[in-house]
Design a protein around this nucleic acid. Structure first.
Length: 563
RNA sequence: GCGCUUGUAGCUCAGUUGGAUAGAGUGUUUGGCUACGAACCAAAAGGUCGGGGGUUCGAAUCCCUCCAAGCGCGCCA
């Protein structure tokens, strides 16, 4: 990564300057260098601020910068000092090399080894199998799968998991609700009871039940039916789980009981008022929590603790949970439980996603107030997987999303996903044109294609000559340079997105990358009779296409060749 | 009352260990297609970074305080 490269160079120069006792009273380099883009493009392409050395050196920042620069050998770049900033300007050799590098590495170019093979379990969506997903589930699904993708790409060993809440009282209610729907279909005149699931989707489920109930109870049938629909939608939504983990199985396998026993042995539970309590307040929770209610049934927490123990026992070094913001109060008790069981609670990392509001016809639709809830299924049918995913991913997970259906649906410049995909399709179009027959406008005759595919492939494999900056206008030079630098930036960006668990950064980058390409396109003619020149420019277009397609792919958004 | 999140351009949002003149998109105004996709590009206008105080060479960023919005504070799941 170029930023790190310049930081290294500067760090070495500072050390040399200190050795030569040129930096006043500075004995050692204690400052952390940060490499940014200069505010003003004329200054250079990268900038490092060394003003912080003023404290120890007791010298003016410009003098410090000049002193350091004396120790930097300027190779394929030039330096320009402004105030306390050392600005690096790349020369074309540097930039050309980046393209050669991408051609060689292809879509592995962006990879970095920040994961070092760490075993990570990402648990997300984890809905009750009692009905269709709402829009919020779509956000968790998009977020979790995109995060899993980028982490895998950066060499984390990622395991994606969905926890099925199939053991609680809600399953009984689901069974009763289905029973009523079935009896209604049979012609009985009964009403849906208060507190049960009134949604129409159970009517469809009831029809399937009547067709073939496989000898299952109402509850079991409904549960399996709902889960099947959920799985189908997740698949369609580009979300893959390695395991659907059943809460019920924790009881069947005695894991809940064993987990309780461990806590008991560690003296972390006690009885009071006829219930069994977990001493979570010993580990920073506000209050102790009930594990077994006075009616003898376990709380949701009890099984969930056993579930987290199970995950840790499977050898995961890190557990990432994606939860809705309405569950934030649940974090301290889960961390407490992990500590109480003798594990390190820092292994548990919870990503809280703020909720999603739906905007339709310019008005906010409150989930609860809507007569007919808009499900994720409806949304995907209306606006498509790509737009839904991109819209869900483009915002930081701690902002509430206003999902504007009409905007997401509109296939126009208002829709960021099309802007990005359009750039990709445009690049593909150029690459296609290079090997297609051309129309001679003057004579109205067809000409041979400019290239054969083999010629182009050979050049990509062995780009012996590469100078993208020959015969370009000044504007085109700037645009070419900006595009190359933007491609290079992708690597550091992806690493950051992983580090901060923030796929939204990738979406932002995609928009910027698309913009760089459109800008380049507008100033630069790629295909011409000058074959060598065309090949070099095609290389750049191809590099753009590779990086763009890979990033879109990581987000679970398609990279269409035509639109 | 306590806790978490948020408050930046008309609107939707970036701004990640405190750094140069606070940035994008959208909207508004204007200009650009007889060669590779105009679903595009370029330019202009648009800001007391919720208010107030503090920390320092320097604050949208850190601290305090107040205001506003969303979400939590179950022997529900």
């Amino acid at each position: 990564m170029l930023k790190n490269y310049f930081i290294e160079i500067t760090k070495n120069a500072i050390n040399k300057a200190i050795e030569a006792q040129e930096l006043g009273e500075t004995k050692e380099n204690t400052i952390e260098l940060v490499c940014d883009k200069p505010k003003n493009k004329d200054f250079g392409d990268f900038a490092i601020n060394v003003s912080a050395l003023a404290r120890t050196a007791k010298m003016a920042p410009p003098v410090i910068a000049q002193t350091i620069v004396k120790h930097i050998k300027q190779e394929n770049f030039t330096i320009n000092v402004v105030a306390g900033f050392i600005n690096f300007k790349l020369e074309k050799e540097f930039l050309n090399k980046i393209i050669v590098d991408i051609l060689a590495k292809k879509d592995d170019y962006l990879k970095s080894d920040i994961g070092k093979g760490e075993k990570v379990n990402i648990e997300y969506v984890s809905a009750n199998p009692t009905g269709p997903f709402h829009i919020g589930h779509g956000r968790w699904a998009a977020l979790g799968s995109a995060l899993a993708n980028i982490m895998k790409y950066c060499n984390y060993s990622v395991f994606q998991e969905f926890y099925i809440n199939d053991a609680g009282n809600q399953i009984n209610k689901l069974g009763k609700s289905l029973e009523i729907r079935v009896r209604q279909l049979k012609g009985e005149n009964i009403e849906m009871e208060e507190g049960l699931y009134p949604g129409d989707y159970l009517i469809d489920c009831a029809k399937r039940y009547l067709e073939n109930n496989k000898g299952l109870s109402y509850a079991d049938f409904a549960k399996q039916d709902m889960l099947r629909l959920q799985k189908e939608l997740l698949e369609k939504f580009g979300t893959h789980f390695d395991l659907f983990f059943s809460e019920l199985s924790l009881y069947q396998d005695n894991e809940v009981e064993k987990c309780m026993e461990t806590l008991r042995q560690r003296e972390k539970i006690y009885e009071k008022d006829g219930a069994v309590w977990f001493k979570s307040s010993d580990y920073g929770d506000d209050q102790d929590r009930v594990l077994v209610k006075t009616d003898g049934k376990n709380t949701y927490l009890t099984a969930d603790i056993a579930y987290h123990k199970n995950k840790l026992d499977r050898g995961f070094e890190r557990l990432i949970n994606i939860w809705g913001a309405d569950h934030h109060g649940y974090i301290p008790r889960m961390k407490a439980a992990i500590e109480a069981l003798g594990y390190d609670s820092n292994k548990l990392e919870v990503i809280l996603g703020q909720l999603v509001n739906l905007i339709q016809d310019g008005e906010q639709q409150r989930m609860g107030k809507r007569k007919k809830m808009v499900t994720l299924d409806d949304l995907v049918d209306e606006v498509g997987v790509d737009a839904t995913r991109f819209w869900m991913l483009m915002r930081s997970s701690d902002t509430t999303i206003d999902f504007d259906i009409d905007l997401a649906k509109s296939q126009s410049d208002k829709n960021p996903v099309f802007y990005v995909q359009y750039a990709h399709a445009r690049a593909c179009s150029i690459l296609r044109k290079a090997i297609e027959n051309r129309l001679d406008i003057d004579n109205k005759t067809e000409l041979e294609p400019l290239f054969k595919q083999e010629e182009i492939d050979n050049f990509y494999q062995n780009p012996s000559i590469m100078d993208l900056f020959e015969n370009l206008s000044d504007e085109s030079k700037e645009a070419t340079k900006a595009l190359i630098l933007k491609l290079e930036e992708g690597k550091a960006l992806l690493a950051n997105a992983v580090k901060y668990r923030a796929p939204y950064m990738v979406c932002k980058y995609l928009t910027e990358l698309a913009n760089s390409f459109h800008h380049f396109y507008n100033f630069t003619r790629v295909l011409s009779e000058n074959k060598k020149d065309s090949l070099m420019k095609l290389s750049l277009v191809n590099c753009f296409r590779i990086i763009m397609a890979k990033m879109l792919n990581l987000m679970g958004v398609s990279a269409p060749e035509k639109m």
